[in-house]
Computed example of a mutant assay.
Amino acid sequence: MTEFNRRQALGALGAATAVGLAAPACAAGRKITVGALRFTSHAGSFIAFERGYFAEAGLEVELKFFQAAQPMAVAIASGDVDYAITAISGGLVSLADKGAIKVIGGALSEEPGIDGQKILASDAAFQAGLTAPAALDGKSFGMSTAGSSFHYMGSKVAAAEGVSLSFKPLQKVGAIIGALKSGQIDAWSIVPHIAKPLAASGAVHIIGDIADYLPDYQVTTVFTSATNAADERDMTGDYLSAYARGVADYNATMIAQESGQAGVDAMVDLIHKYVYTDRPRETAAASIINGTMRLNGGAALNVASVRDQLKWFQSEGLVDEGITLETLLDTSYVETLGS
């Protein structure tokens, strides 16, 4: 994979350069629906909504929440959702091949030096010797569906370690967590704000980091319908500009901590409206902070990582071999890195 120092590159780009934050809104009064998961990594959307960045861009936004990537991709294709943040999946690639969707930016990437996704083992498997990824041979690995980001990550780890995994499709993140805690599956990988609390419970153990295997992995992307990408350029640009402002606030507050502890506390309060809403703020705060990962400044997109993912989907027979990056991506809206 092409070397990609995002800390340096994205800092130089800045949100304004990448998507024209200073440009006047041209989509005033447009109502759009934005898809999201209740993950800390989706904080850019929550911040843009709560701090009025979408409204300032002339967009009236409704947030719609999902429990997995594939239903969100289907919702974009059907027109039920206009823009969304999610991992690239085989289903998403297939929808792009049908002319239904386009990836238009990057949302979250693994970055050396920044806490990232963890590789987990159930307590039963850990006690039986699964204490490192090298011991995964013959073990079961949880995923939502075939062709999901979990499937991709597990396969990449297995290939690097020269081991064989048995993948278990469980549809939803909650079901995967339950299966891991009960020992019905042996291993899984997930973002830190979910991984660390699970490990703290004693039912699950952290045995590795995805960044060691996929150091510049473009974990999630920004995508929309092919129609919006091609025919609603002003609206799409306004959406990306507002989203990028939310991302800039998040990185400045949670990564650089430019506003100190008071800023972190205020950001946690905002995110808690959407993440771990079933917990009191005092117990949710640690998990939200544990989930701190740098988001892609300006929604910049790591094309090299997307290329690697597409090749993997094709090698597994999950998508057609003739699909190209141009089929999947519209790179005209943001800076591209690692291409």
Rank of each mutant, 00 (worst) to 15 (best):
E3K: 13
E3I: 14
A9Y: 12
A15F: 12
A22T: 12
A22Q: 13
C26N: 11
A27P: 04
G29C: 06
S45R: 01
A48C: 06
A48H: 05
R51Y: 07
A55K: 09
A69M: 09
P71N: 02
P71Q: 04
A77K: 03
A77W: 03
A77S: 12
S78V: 01
G79I: 06
D80L: 10
V81T: 09
I88K: 12
G91C: 07
G91S: 06
A96V: 08
K98E: 13
G99Y: 02
V103E: 06
V103M: 08
I104F: 07
G105D: 02
L108H: 02
E111F: 08
P112M: 10
G113K: 06
K118T: 08
I119H: 04
A128R: 09
L130S: 05
P133Q: 05
S140I: 00
F141M: 03
F141I: 08
M143F: 15
G147I: 03
F150Q: 14
F150G: 14
Y152M: 13
Y152R: 06
A159P: 00
S164N: 12
L165Q: 04
K168S: 10
P169T: 04
P169K: 07
L170Q: 01
K172G: 01
V173F: 10
G174R: 02
V191H: 11
H193E: 13
A200G: 06
H205S: 05
I206F: 02
I207F: 02
T224F: 14
A230P: 08
A230Y: 12
D234A: 14
L240Q: 08
L240E: 04
G246P: 12
A252I: 07
M254Y: 01
M254G: 11
Q261T: 13
Q261D: 15
A266Y: 08
M267Y: 03
K273L: 15
V275P: 07
V275G: 04
V275L: 07
Y276V: 09
E282G: 04
E282A: 15
A284E: 12
S287F: 02
I288R: 01
I289G: 08
M293A: 11
A299M: 07
A300K: 08
L301N: 03
N302P: 00
N302K: 04
N302W: 04
S305G: 14
R307Q: 14
L310M: 07
V319G: 00
E321I: 05
E326T: 05
D330V: 08
T331C: 04
E335G: 12
G338N: 02
